[in-house]
Amino acid sequence: MKQEQFVASRKQRWEHYQALLAKLTQREKLPAAGEFPAQYRRLCNDLAVASARGYSLGLIRQLQSWIRDGHALLYRSRPSLAQNFVAFFSRDFPSLVRAEWRLLALCSLLLFGPMLWLFWQIGSTPEFVYRVLSPEAVESYERMYARSAGGRGADNDVMMFAFYIMNNIGVSLRTFAGGLLFGIGSAVILLFNGVMIGAVAAHLSFEGYHQNFWTFVIGHGAFELPAIVLAGVAGLRMGLSLLLPGPFSRLDALRISARRAVTLLYGVIAMLVLAAGLEAFWSASPAPAAIKYVVGGLLWLVVLAYFSLAGRGSTSRAN
């Protein structure tokens, strides 16, 4: 069959395919949608025939361009997270975190290690805080916690919520991305945050601001600090895959670990949104100190229980 005959005999079907494609691409619900895959495969067949018979590149590229659009429509991935929301938080996320327990321990050490060290240092020599923070910064933190929480006003709560979202999630996303630098970026960000948080916490605790400080941070800290650690785990997972790729090429190892890391990141973002809500609307509320300690302690227990128990016993995607 010559090219012109070939085109003429299929013209009608091709036009039908294009019309179907245009409608489906605009997300129109069609009763005829079910026939699209068959139409698409017949077009693929036409392309194979046209290539084998040596028809012109003009025709072949035309067919390819129609097929490319159909391919994009047919093989697009459905956003699976929305569908698997419950399965993700009840099973996949905590079991993925448990599967990464070695990195979890390492990242916890990178964040909490400097904190403990600074508590010890500043506890024995209070001036040590000025080797970490400038006098102006120390003074501004002291002013911040000079009075007890509360009375900030609802408007300010909302504003701070937005600020915490932007700042904390921004930090965690950067911690993740830094992992690509062989894990160094993530580790540095974790250490830096450990040092800064440790210095501020230790200084305020030993200088008489402990009540105002700890009642403020204990609640949202239960979500925020583990989230930062997990962002570090996600980053180091990527960095480690480059250093120790195992049975894969470095590129393949990076791709596999990036998929895992981004799954962790979904959980991290959810935790930080929760933490921002608590920080803005609960931590700053004028509730009595005793209640804040009890609720804060319970939140820590909930988080620890969630990560150690949730999703155990079910077959998990993470392993």
Partner: peptide, 18 residues
């Protein structure tokens, strides 16, 4: 050749930082 989904797009755009 398939369209990108959330995971791939998030990875490529967050690593923009690096």
């Amino acid at each position: 050749g398939t369209p990108v989904g959330w995971g791939a797009s998030i990875v490529r755009n967050l690593l923009r930082q690096v």
